[in-house]
């Protein structure tokens, strides 16, 4: 499992760095160029492009991690909810 841990850590690090790079590029290009015209929303309108594309999965995950870790929320409210152990 140490290998899995290192693998996950490496992948996350690379993606995080590339996202930071993307943000910097977007900011340098100016916010005015952001966005699309209404007729350019074909891809964005797809279900899989919804920010919370699987709300049921997200609810189940939130319940697990709320019970097992000291952090909760972020995407939505942190909330109370259960005396889970």
């Amino acid at each position: 499992m140490v290998i899995l841990g290192e693998m996950v850590r490496d992948i996350m690090k690379k993606i995080f760095q590339s996202n930071i790079l993307l943000i910097v590029l977007l900011m340098s290009s100016g916010c005015s160029s952001l966005g699309v015209e209404p007729w350019e929303r074909d891809l964005l309108a797809r279900k899989e492009m919804a920010l919370n594309a699987s709300p049921i999965d997200a609810a189940l995950d939130d319940h697990i991690y709320f019970s097992k870790e000291a952090s909760s929320g972020g995407r939505s409210f942190a909330g109370g909810g259960c005396g889970c152990n």
């Binding site: 952001l34 966005g35 350019e40 492009m49 920010l51 995407r75 942190a78 109370g80």
Partner: peptide, 26 residues
């Protein structure tokens, strides 16, 4: 008792990309 406050910003970047930023206080 729990009080949560959430501030969010969603931005369409281009035809292929969308981003969301949230700040939460609990």
């Amino acid at each position: 008792t729990t009080i949560d406050v959430l501030l969010g910003l969603t931005q369409v970047i281009n035809r292929r990309a969308i981003m969301q930023f949230n700040y939460s206080f609990s």
